[in-house]
Protein backbone atom coordinates (compact mmCIF):
# COMPACT_ATOMS: atom_id res chain seq x y z
CA UNK A 1 0.00 0.00 0.00
CA UNK A 2 1.07 3.61 -0.39
CA UNK A 3 2.08 5.36 2.78
CA UNK A 4 -0.64 7.57 4.29
CA UNK A 5 0.38 10.59 6.34
CA UNK A 6 -1.42 12.06 9.34
CA UNK A 7 -0.88 14.32 12.29
CA UNK A 8 -1.16 12.74 15.73
CA UNK A 9 -1.12 15.21 18.60
CA UNK A 10 1.28 14.72 21.48
CA UNK A 11 -1.74 14.39 23.76
CA UNK A 12 -3.24 11.71 21.50
CA UNK A 13 -0.34 9.27 21.84
CA UNK A 14 -1.33 8.01 25.32
CA UNK A 15 -4.92 7.68 24.11
CA UNK A 16 -3.81 5.58 21.15
CA UNK A 17 -1.62 3.53 23.46
CA UNK A 18 -4.54 2.83 25.78
CA UNK A 19 -6.78 1.87 22.85
CA UNK A 20 -4.19 -0.66 21.67
CA UNK A 21 -3.92 -2.08 25.21
CA UNK A 22 -7.71 -2.23 25.44
CA UNK A 23 -7.89 -4.16 22.16
CA UNK A 24 -6.32 -7.11 23.94
CA UNK A 25 -2.99 -7.05 22.17
CA UNK A 26 0.21 -7.53 24.14
CA UNK A 27 2.11 -4.23 24.11
CA UNK A 28 5.85 -4.09 24.60
CA UNK A 29 7.60 -0.76 24.82
CA UNK A 30 10.91 0.72 25.96
CA UNK A 31 10.97 0.81 29.74
CA UNK A 32 13.67 2.10 32.06
CA UNK A 33 14.74 -0.72 34.30
CA UNK A 34 17.22 -0.47 37.16
CA UNK A 35 20.27 -0.51 34.87
CA UNK A 36 19.19 -0.33 31.22
CA UNK A 37 16.29 0.61 28.92
CA UNK A 38 14.73 -2.30 27.09
CA UNK A 39 11.48 -3.51 25.57
CA UNK A 40 9.21 -4.91 28.26
CA UNK A 41 5.55 -5.49 28.98
CA UNK A 42 4.14 -2.18 30.13
CA UNK A 43 1.01 -1.69 32.16
CA UNK A 44 0.36 1.89 31.15
CA UNK A 45 1.75 4.67 28.98
CA UNK A 46 3.39 6.30 31.98
CA UNK A 47 5.87 3.41 32.10
CA UNK A 48 7.01 4.03 28.53
CA UNK A 49 10.17 6.07 28.12
CA UNK A 50 11.22 8.05 25.06
CA UNK A 51 14.61 8.84 26.54
CA UNK A 52 16.82 6.43 24.60
CA UNK A 53 18.99 6.43 21.49
CA UNK A 54 18.29 2.72 21.08
CA UNK A 55 17.32 0.12 23.67
CA UNK A 56 20.19 -2.03 24.95
CA UNK A 57 18.71 -5.13 23.34
CA UNK A 58 17.01 -5.15 19.97
CA UNK A 59 13.34 -5.83 19.35
CA UNK A 60 14.12 -9.24 17.83
CA UNK A 61 13.02 -11.10 20.98
CA UNK A 62 9.41 -10.69 19.92
CA UNK A 63 9.93 -13.26 17.16
CA UNK A 64 13.23 -14.80 18.23
CA UNK A 65 13.36 -14.90 22.02
CA UNK A 66 16.45 -15.94 23.95
CA UNK A 67 14.70 -19.20 24.87
CA UNK A 68 12.04 -20.75 22.63
CA UNK A 69 10.33 -24.03 23.52
CA UNK A 70 10.11 -25.87 20.19
CA UNK A 71 7.89 -28.67 21.49
CA UNK A 72 7.11 -30.57 24.67
CA UNK A 73 7.52 -34.26 25.25
CA UNK A 74 6.54 -36.93 27.70
CA UNK A 75 8.58 -40.11 27.96
CA UNK A 76 7.00 -43.36 29.07
CA UNK A 77 7.75 -47.08 29.02
CA UNK A 78 6.04 -47.42 25.63
CA UNK A 79 7.79 -44.60 23.93
CA UNK A 80 7.60 -40.85 23.54
CA UNK A 81 4.68 -38.49 23.10
CA UNK A 82 5.39 -35.15 21.47
CA UNK A 83 3.12 -32.14 21.92
CA UNK A 84 3.76 -29.80 19.04
CA UNK A 85 4.30 -26.05 19.33
CA UNK A 86 0.93 -24.31 19.71
CA UNK A 87 1.17 -21.84 16.85
CA UNK A 88 -2.43 -20.73 17.36
CA UNK A 89 -1.60 -19.67 20.92
CA UNK A 90 0.87 -17.02 19.73
CA UNK A 91 -0.58 -13.67 20.79
CA UNK A 92 -0.87 -10.49 18.74
CA UNK A 93 1.95 -8.23 19.89
CA UNK A 94 2.49 -4.55 19.31
CA UNK A 95 6.08 -3.37 19.58
CA UNK A 96 5.87 0.31 20.50
CA UNK A 97 8.83 2.66 20.17
CA UNK A 98 10.94 0.64 17.76
CA UNK A 99 13.74 2.66 16.13
CA UNK A 100 13.97 2.52 12.31
CA UNK A 101 17.25 0.56 12.47
CA UNK A 102 15.63 -2.02 14.68
CA UNK A 103 12.56 -2.27 12.44
CA UNK A 104 14.84 -2.79 9.44
CA UNK A 105 16.46 -5.68 11.31
CA UNK A 106 13.43 -7.93 10.87
CA UNK A 107 14.12 -8.21 7.15
CA UNK A 108 17.48 -9.99 7.41
CA UNK A 109 16.20 -12.03 10.35
CA UNK A 110 13.21 -13.14 8.28
CA UNK A 111 15.47 -13.97 5.34
CA UNK A 112 17.47 -16.36 7.52
CA UNK A 113 14.42 -18.03 9.03
CA UNK A 114 12.72 -18.50 5.65
CA UNK A 115 15.76 -19.51 3.60
CA UNK A 116 14.34 -22.44 1.59
CA UNK A 117 12.69 -23.89 4.68
CA UNK A 118 10.12 -21.85 6.59
CA UNK A 119 10.71 -21.63 10.33
CA UNK A 120 7.03 -21.40 11.07
CA UNK A 121 7.48 -20.50 14.74
CA UNK A 122 9.48 -17.41 13.82
CA UNK A 123 7.34 -16.40 10.85
CA UNK A 124 4.05 -16.83 12.70
CA UNK A 125 5.34 -14.67 15.52
CA UNK A 126 6.51 -12.03 13.08
CA UNK A 127 3.17 -12.09 11.25
CA UNK A 128 1.41 -11.45 14.53
CA UNK A 129 3.69 -8.54 15.41
CA UNK A 130 2.88 -4.93 14.62
CA UNK A 131 5.82 -2.55 14.64
CA UNK A 132 5.17 1.00 15.74
CA UNK A 133 8.31 2.87 14.92
CA UNK A 134 9.61 6.17 16.24
CA UNK A 135 12.11 8.12 14.13
CA UNK A 136 15.34 9.22 15.77
CA UNK A 137 15.82 12.81 16.88
CA UNK A 138 19.12 11.89 18.51
CA UNK A 139 22.06 9.77 17.52
CA UNK A 140 25.40 9.02 19.16
CA UNK A 141 28.92 8.22 17.97
CA UNK A 142 27.98 4.54 17.58
CA UNK A 143 25.10 5.10 15.13
CA UNK A 144 25.84 4.35 11.47
CA UNK A 145 22.49 3.42 9.90
CA UNK A 146 23.13 5.71 6.93
CA UNK A 147 26.27 3.74 6.05
CA UNK A 148 24.31 0.51 5.61
CA UNK A 149 21.31 1.80 3.69
CA UNK A 150 19.08 3.03 6.49
CA UNK A 151 18.26 6.42 7.89
CA UNK A 152 16.86 7.87 11.13
CA UNK A 153 13.42 8.30 9.56
CA UNK A 154 13.27 5.15 7.43
CA UNK A 155 9.84 3.52 7.19
CA UNK A 156 11.31 0.12 6.32
CA UNK A 157 9.96 -2.59 8.59
CA UNK A 158 7.57 -0.36 10.54
CA UNK A 159 3.79 -0.61 10.24
CA UNK A 160 3.34 2.91 11.55
CA UNK A 161 6.20 5.37 11.94
CA UNK A 162 5.93 8.39 14.21
CA UNK A 163 8.24 11.35 13.75
CA UNK A 164 8.28 14.06 16.41
CA UNK A 165 7.79 17.52 14.92
CA UNK A 166 9.00 20.85 16.27
CA UNK A 167 5.61 21.46 17.89
CA UNK A 168 5.96 18.26 19.90
CA UNK A 169 3.16 16.66 17.89
CA UNK A 170 3.85 13.72 15.60
CA UNK A 171 3.83 12.98 11.92
CA UNK A 172 2.26 9.52 11.63
CA UNK A 173 3.06 7.48 8.54
CA UNK A 174 0.75 4.49 8.15
CA UNK A 175 2.75 2.04 6.09
CA UNK A 176 1.01 -1.32 6.05
CA UNK A 177 -2.33 -3.08 6.57
CA UNK A 178 -1.20 -3.90 10.10
CA UNK A 179 -0.65 -0.18 10.59
CA UNK A 180 -4.12 0.53 9.20
CA UNK A 181 -5.56 -1.89 11.75
CA UNK A 182 -3.93 0.09 14.55
CA UNK A 183 -5.23 3.35 13.07
CA UNK A 184 -8.71 1.82 12.93
CA UNK A 185 -8.64 1.39 16.73
CA UNK A 186 -8.77 5.20 17.08
CA UNK A 187 -9.25 6.82 13.65
CA UNK A 188 -10.25 10.12 15.28
CA UNK A 189 -6.67 10.59 16.56
CA UNK A 190 -5.24 10.57 13.05
CA UNK A 191 -5.75 14.13 11.77
CA UNK A 192 -4.91 15.87 8.51
CA UNK A 193 -1.26 15.56 7.58
CA UNK A 194 1.06 18.33 8.82
CA UNK A 195 2.95 20.45 6.32
CA UNK A 196 6.22 20.39 8.24
CA UNK A 197 9.13 18.62 6.58
CA UNK A 198 10.03 15.28 8.16
CA UNK A 199 13.72 15.44 7.31
CA UNK A 200 14.50 18.52 9.40
CA UNK A 201 13.24 16.68 12.49
CA UNK A 202 15.60 13.75 12.17
CA UNK A 203 18.98 13.08 13.76
CA UNK A 204 22.02 13.64 11.56
CA UNK A 205 24.03 10.48 11.02
CA UNK A 206 27.09 10.86 8.81
CA UNK A 207 27.76 8.33 6.08
CA UNK A 208 31.08 6.64 6.87
CA UNK A 209 31.11 3.98 4.13
CA UNK A 210 28.64 1.97 2.05
CA UNK A 211 27.70 -1.63 2.59
CA UNK A 212 28.66 -2.41 -0.99
CA UNK A 213 32.18 -1.10 -0.40
CA UNK A 214 32.47 -3.27 2.70
CA UNK A 215 31.36 -6.31 0.72
CA UNK A 216 33.89 -5.63 -1.99
CA UNK A 217 36.69 -5.21 0.56
CA UNK A 218 35.93 -8.17 2.82
CA UNK A 219 35.63 -10.47 -0.18
CA UNK A 220 39.04 -9.28 -1.29
CA UNK A 221 40.75 -9.34 2.11
CA UNK A 222 39.56 -12.66 3.53
CA UNK A 223 43.18 -13.72 4.12
CA UNK A 224 44.37 -10.32 5.37
CA UNK A 225 46.02 -9.65 8.75
CA UNK A 226 43.37 -7.01 9.40
CA UNK A 227 41.20 -9.59 11.21
CA UNK A 228 44.01 -10.40 13.64
CA UNK A 229 44.71 -6.73 14.29
CA UNK A 230 41.05 -5.89 14.84
CA UNK A 231 40.28 -8.94 16.98
CA UNK A 232 43.24 -8.53 19.35
CA UNK A 233 41.22 -7.02 22.18
CA UNK A 234 38.09 -9.16 21.57
CA UNK A 235 37.58 -11.42 24.59
CA UNK A 236 35.15 -13.78 22.88
CA UNK A 237 31.90 -13.16 24.72
CA UNK A 238 28.54 -13.20 22.96
CA UNK A 239 27.33 -9.72 23.83
CA UNK A 240 27.50 -8.34 20.28
CA UNK A 241 25.40 -11.18 18.90
CA UNK A 242 22.86 -11.10 21.69
CA UNK A 243 22.09 -7.38 21.41
CA UNK A 244 22.17 -7.46 17.58
CA UNK A 245 18.82 -7.13 15.76
CA UNK A 246 19.91 -9.46 12.95
CA UNK A 247 22.07 -12.11 14.62
CA UNK A 248 20.15 -15.38 14.44
CA UNK A 249 22.63 -18.09 15.44
CA UNK A 250 21.17 -20.56 17.87
CA UNK A 251 21.68 -23.76 19.80
CA UNK A 252 19.18 -26.58 20.29
CA UNK A 253 18.99 -28.32 23.67
CA UNK A 254 16.70 -30.66 25.58
CA UNK A 255 15.55 -29.84 29.10
CA UNK A 256 14.14 -32.58 31.27
CA UNK A 257 11.87 -32.31 34.24
CA UNK A 258 11.48 -35.93 35.22
CA UNK A 259 9.63 -37.71 32.42
CA UNK A 260 8.52 -34.44 30.87
CA UNK A 261 10.54 -31.89 29.10
CA UNK A 262 10.95 -29.71 26.10
CA UNK A 263 13.36 -29.13 23.28
CA UNK A 264 14.48 -25.52 23.26
CA UNK A 265 16.20 -23.13 20.92
CA UNK A 266 18.53 -20.66 22.63
CA UNK A 267 20.62 -17.78 21.34
CA UNK A 268 24.19 -18.64 20.46
CA UNK A 269 27.12 -16.65 19.12
CA UNK A 270 29.77 -17.24 16.47
CA UNK A 271 32.21 -15.43 18.77
CA UNK A 272 32.17 -18.21 21.36
CA UNK A 273 35.24 -20.45 21.08
CA UNK A 274 33.12 -23.61 21.40
CA UNK A 275 30.62 -22.62 18.72
CA UNK A 276 32.11 -24.67 15.91
CA UNK A 277 34.14 -27.11 18.01
CA UNK A 278 33.86 -30.71 16.77
CA UNK A 279 33.49 -33.61 19.19
CA UNK A 280 36.92 -34.78 18.03
CA UNK A 281 38.49 -31.58 19.38
CA UNK A 282 39.06 -30.16 15.89
CA UNK A 283 37.86 -26.56 15.57
CA UNK A 284 37.39 -25.05 12.09
CA UNK A 285 37.51 -21.54 13.57
CA UNK A 286 40.11 -22.03 16.31
CA UNK A 287 41.10 -18.43 17.03
CA UNK A 288 39.23 -15.23 17.87
CA UNK A 289 40.32 -13.47 14.68
CA UNK A 290 38.68 -16.26 12.62
CA UNK A 291 35.52 -15.84 14.63
CA UNK A 292 35.55 -12.05 14.26
CA UNK A 293 36.06 -12.49 10.51
CA UNK A 294 33.10 -14.87 10.40
CA UNK A 295 30.92 -12.32 12.17
CA UNK A 296 31.76 -9.56 9.69
CA UNK A 297 31.84 -11.78 6.59
CA UNK A 298 28.49 -13.32 7.48
CA UNK A 299 26.84 -9.93 7.70
CA UNK A 300 28.55 -8.23 4.77
CA UNK A 301 29.34 -11.05 2.34
CA UNK A 302 27.64 -14.39 2.98
CA UNK A 303 24.17 -12.99 3.68
CA UNK A 304 24.03 -10.71 0.63
CA UNK A 305 25.46 -13.53 -1.49
CA UNK A 306 23.11 -16.21 -0.29
CA UNK A 307 19.90 -14.54 0.86
CA UNK A 308 20.16 -11.18 -0.83
CA UNK A 309 20.17 -9.01 2.29
CA UNK A 310 22.89 -7.47 4.43
CA UNK A 311 23.06 -8.52 8.07
CA UNK A 312 23.76 -5.13 9.61
CA UNK A 313 21.41 -2.19 10.14
CA UNK A 314 23.89 0.19 11.74
CA UNK A 315 22.20 0.46 15.13
CA UNK A 316 25.58 0.32 16.89
CA UNK A 317 24.26 -1.82 19.74
CA UNK A 318 27.22 -4.21 19.53
CA UNK A 319 29.62 -1.29 19.95
CA UNK A 320 27.75 0.16 22.91
CA UNK A 321 27.44 -3.16 24.69
CA UNK A 322 30.93 -4.48 23.95
CA UNK A 323 32.95 -4.80 27.16
CA UNK A 324 36.20 -4.11 25.30
CA UNK A 325 35.09 -1.36 22.92
CA UNK A 326 35.16 -3.34 19.68
CA UNK A 327 33.68 -0.44 17.75
CA UNK A 328 32.19 -2.04 14.63
CA UNK A 329 31.76 1.24 12.74
CA UNK A 330 35.42 2.09 13.33
CA UNK A 331 36.55 -1.37 12.21
CA UNK A 332 34.31 -1.22 9.12
CA UNK A 333 35.51 2.28 8.28
CA UNK A 334 39.10 1.01 8.39
CA UNK A 335 38.18 -1.95 6.19
CA UNK A 336 36.49 0.41 3.72
CA UNK A 337 39.77 2.30 3.37
CA UNK A 338 41.88 -0.77 2.65
Amino acid sequence: MTIEKYLVKKTSLPVLFDKIKASGKVVKAPKKKSHTTDFADVASFSEVTDDYIVTTQSAKSVAFPRVEKLFNYVKSKDGVQITDYALNAIPEVVMWGVRPCDAAGFDPLNAIFTWDINDVIFTTKLKKTTIIGFSCQNADENCFCTSVGGNPGSTQGSDILFTKLSSGDYLAEVISEKGKAIQALAPELFEAAPSEDKEQNLAKVDVKFTKEIIKEKVDKYFESDVWKEQAQRCIGCGTCAFVCPTCACFDIQDENHGKNGHRIRTWDSCCFSQFTLHTSGHNPRPTQDRRWRQRIMHKFSYMPDRINVYGCVGCGRCSRACPVDMNIAEHLTNISKM
Binding site: T239, F242, W267, P323
Partner: peptide, 15 residues
Amino acid sequence: EELSECFKCYACRAA
Protein backbone atom coordinates in the same frame (compact mmCIF):
# COMPACT_ATOMS: atom_id res chain seq x y z
CA GLU B 1 14.76 -10.12 39.51
CA GLU B 2 18.36 -8.97 39.11
CA LEU B 3 19.46 -12.10 37.27
CA SER B 4 16.33 -12.26 35.11
CA GLU B 5 18.04 -9.66 32.94
CA CYS B 6 20.91 -12.01 32.11
CA PHE B 7 20.91 -13.44 28.58
CA LYS B 8 24.06 -15.47 29.09
CA CYS B 9 26.44 -13.65 26.77
CA TYR B 10 29.16 -14.64 29.26
CA ALA B 11 30.80 -11.21 29.07
CA CYS B 12 31.30 -11.51 32.85
CA ARG B 13 33.27 -14.69 32.34
CA ALA B 14 35.20 -13.39 29.33
CA ALA B 15 36.25 -10.21 31.16
